[in-house]
């Protein structure tokens, strides 16, 4: 889980003073914080780790690196939170309001 995953920055916007962007990784698009890659603009490719862009990368390098990560089964962090919503939970836990 220490590897960054490259993706294409589609758009940049400001959320409460933080620079955010939409990044496309293969078929998945996620919101990513751009504070650590503040000079990235739409169209750039960025390396993203747990929702944070940590560096820019060129397009060919991004494609190659993503292919290796997919082959290694190392792109799971992109969808782990979505898959998790399907896991069962038996009901409200003490202190939680009933939905």
């Amino acid at each position: 889980m220490c590897l960054g995953i490259p993706g294409e920055l589609l758009e940049v916007r400001d959320v409460k003073g933080l620079k955010f962007g939409k990044v496309r990784f293969g078929g998945i698009t996620r919101d990513v914080c751009l504070e650590y890659a503040a000079d990235a603009v739409a169209g750039d490719y960025v390396v993203v780790h747990v929702g944070f862009a940590i560096s820019k990368i060129d397009k060919d390098e991004a494609a190659r690196s993503f292919a290796v990560l997919e082959d290694l089964g190392q792109t799971g962090e992109l969808t782990a939170d979505m898959a998790e919503q399907l896991l069962p939970r038996s009901g409200p836990w003490p202190g939680e309001e009933d939905p």
Binding site: R30, V32, C33, V50, G51, F52, E77, L78, A80, D81, A83, E84, L87, P88, R89, S90, G91, P92, W93, G95, E96
Partner: peptide, 27 residues
Amino acid sequence: LKSRGADVRVVYSPLDAVRIASQNPAR
């Protein structure tokens, strides 16, 4: 623990956890 009912959630980014906190001020 989650399967027994504890509220354990997977997040993609640590900032998602901050967002969950601001949406659930009583928790």
